[in-house]
Design a protein around this nucleic acid. Structure first.
Length: 631
DNA sequence: TCGTAAGTAAACAGAG
DNA sequence: GCTCTGTTTACTTACG
């Protein structure tokens, strides 16, 4: 009654909530605060943000270390891969150590790949980077002076053995810091490459070399050269190295590129001497930059009949901006390859682990073998968090087509963030009930689950509680059972699975599915919802009847159709009259007694040529005429 | 344009 | 009478 609304409003301090007309309900849908902040964030944007977080942490380190600020009890800088609560201004958070030159900006503008907001962010990044570089230069100068002083003191005091460790420690810390900066720079550059903002190829002249040299101040370049030039033997140093003689630049992270380890130029003529020396060392014609009579310098490929002619290396690839830039590009290439390798290794490991686990699981588990890996690998909502919650609220499909944070974080996310969960009330109610030990909950316990699991439901209680009650009564999948302690609600899984699965053929969903099938970072909430709706994740506790199989097959079919229909990169056309795939590609379920010897799971997936376009349409609530047709 | 699912608001009734 | 619970209706919105 109205009383409920009144009391709820009082208890929640949301008096304006109640008594609101339906128009208000409609307007609330469009309120920005009810939509996730990253509603229009693309995968690339998220990757970008992820990178910015790394950059931000490193920058914070840089800002803290020179000032010897306490660490405020946080993790040490080396374990800084998860510090989401660091409060930094947006401009700082977004800044990356990468300068976008005017040429690049013009290119970006011409390509129209960035929105004005993104351009603004890039400009902010550029400005922030310049500041950061200045700071770094100053820091480096101070470090240099300090080291120089220490070295002088050592020479005068003759206490070399005792002082050296301190110097080396500082040097190492500084090196690490520089390496981190460089790493972030490289990552950012690669990120830009991935986004098509830059087209840098090894040895390719498309990117003006001076741009690369502009990206990092000359001093920083030199610093980097020194850091990377770890294989320079001390005997190669002479008096020209300005006090760097004593530097132990043996990096804890050895150079990954033979080019750098053996030929990275540092400064002055002594390096020229060094280059000749190293060439002489490779007189056995096994120089890594010389192979099959071709100069392997990126972009060179000059042909030389003999190794002696290959000494052109000293002339053509001498220390200059060009070579430095090429060097840097090569470093980025290597680093990218290493990152890719690491990712692929990790993926392989996950696949092997998963397959091993799957192969050892009992086959009785009613899971679709073809989709379980997908759902397990990418699903956000799992048994560890929200299990298979259910369908996403359709009207929010666009807003919620964003990757939600991974599994364990997801629960925390909704528990703390005032973000509406992208699932229907029915799905959430079901989840609440299934979460309970006895698979039954009272209404009040359902309420509590909502408020406990979702910060969003800690306000507007009158609204959503009414919706919960409405859904409990409306959907016959929720069964009210009288017991000793009153009425409890249970879930009829079969009825729940009869509910119409959400179509995932919409462009937005398909796009996400493409991402997911293409090893995207996460599965879209909508796709998860669709999967969860059909019990694809491992959460079915009730009996699995044919309706379940049907709806499950719907999900599979929809997924496959969606993924296949939009297998191209565009994935934006899903006009009803256009079906790129013939009907025979549609997957339906052959509802026959299952032969465990023939199938890994309970499903018998067959393809059919006479698939009804409204296959899933029959399976809704139509088996009970009049039911829920009040709408 | 239409049908459907979902969300919201509200009226109403029964039980404690 | 109040509150909670449950049912039902009406309406809006999103989507295919």
């Amino acid at each position: 009654m109205m009383q409920e609304s009144r009391t709820e409003a009082t208890s929640n301090g949301q008096a304006n909530q109640n008594g609101a007309s339906s128009a208000e309900g409609g307007s609330r849908e469009g309120q920005p605060d009810s939509s996730p902040p990253s509603a229009e964030v693309t995968t690339a944007d998220l990757l970008h943000l992820q990178h910015h977080q790394v950059a931000r942490q490193i920058l914070l380190q840089q800002q803290q270390q020179p000032q010897s600020q306490p660490n405020t009890g946080r993790k040490s800088p080396k374990t800084n891969d998860a510090q989401p609560n660091i409060q930094v201004p947006v401009s700082v958070a977004m800044m990356t150590p990468q300068v976008i030159t005017p040429q690049q900006m013009q290119q970006i503008l011409q390509q129209q790949v960035l929105s004005p907001q993104q351009l603004q962010v890039l400009l902010q990044q550029q400005q922030a980077l310049m500041l950061q570089q200045q700071q770094l230069q100053e820091f480096y100068k101070k470090q240099q002076e300090q080291l120089h002083l220490q070295l002088l003191q050592q020479q005068h005091a003759g206490s070399k053995p005792n002082k050296e460790p301190q110097v080396s420690a500082q040097q190492l810390a500084f090196q690490q810091q520089l390496l981190q900066v460089q790493q972030v720079q490289q990552q950012h550059l690669l990120n830009l490459q991935r986004q098509g903002l830059l087209s840098i190829q090894p040895g390719q002249g498309s990117l003006p070399l001076h741009q690369l040299t502009q990206m990092i101040p000359a001093e920083l370049q030199q610093l980097w050269k020194e850091v990377t030039n770890t294989h320079v033997k001390e005997e190669h140093n002479n008096g020209n190295n300005n006090g760097h003689r004593g530097l132990d630049l043996s990096s804890p992270t050895p150079p990954k590129n033979p080019l750098l380890s053996q030929h990275a130029p540092t400064n002055g003529q002594y390096l020229s001497h060094k280059r000749e020396s190293t060439l002489e060392e490779h007189s056995s014609h096994s120089h890594p930059l010389y192979g099959h009579g071709v100069c392997k310098w990126p972009g060179c490929e000059a042909v030389f009949d003999d190794f002696q002619s290959f000494l052109h290396l000293n002339n053509e690839h001498a220390l200059d901006d060009r070579s430095t830039a090429q060097c840097r590009v090569q470093m980025q290439v290597v680093q990218q390859l290493e990152l890719q390798l690491a990712k692929d290794k990790e993926r392989l490991q996950a696949m092997m682990t998963h397959l091993h686990v799957k192969s050892t699981e009992p086959k009785a588990a009613p899971q679709p073998p073809t989709l379980t890996p997908l759902s397990q690998t990418h699903s956000v909502i799992t048994a560890n968090s929200l299990h298979s919650v259910g369908p996403m609220r359709r009207r929010y499909s666009d807003k919620y087509n964003m990757p939600i944070s991974p599994l364990s974080q997801n629960k925390e996310f909704y528990m703390n963030a005032d973000v509406r969960p992208p699932f229907t009330y029915a799905s959430l109610i079901r989840q609440a009930i299934l979460d309970s030990p006895e698979k039954q909950l009272t209404l009040n316990e359902i309420y509590n689950w909502f408020t406990r699991m979702f910060a969003y439901f800690r306000r507007n209680a009158a609204t959503w509680k009414n919706a919960v009650r409405h859904n409990l009564s409306l959907h016959k999948c929720f069964v009210r059972v009288e017991n000793v302690k009153g009425a409890v609600w249970t879930v009829d899984e079969i009825e729940f699975q009869k509910r119409r699965p959400q179509k995932i053929s919409s462009p937005a969903l398909v796009k996400n599915i493409q991402t997911s099938l293409g090893y995207g970072p996460t599965l879209s909430a909508a796709f998860q919802a669709s999967m969860a709706e059909n019990n694809i994740p491992l959460y079915t506790t009730a009996s699995i009847g044919s309706p379940t199989l049907n709806s499950l097959a719907n999900a599979i079919r929809e997924e496959m159709n969606g993924a296949l229909d939009h297998g191209n990169s565009n994935g934006s056309d899903s006009s009803p009259g256009r079906s790129p795939l013939p009907a025979r590609h549609h997957i339906s379920v052959k509802e026959e007694p299952l032969d465990p010897d023939d199938h890994e799971g309970p499903l018998s997936l067959v393809t059919t040529a006479n698939h009804s376009p409204d296959f899933d349409h029959h399976r809704d609530y139509d088996d009970e005429p009049g039911h829920e047709d009040m709408l």
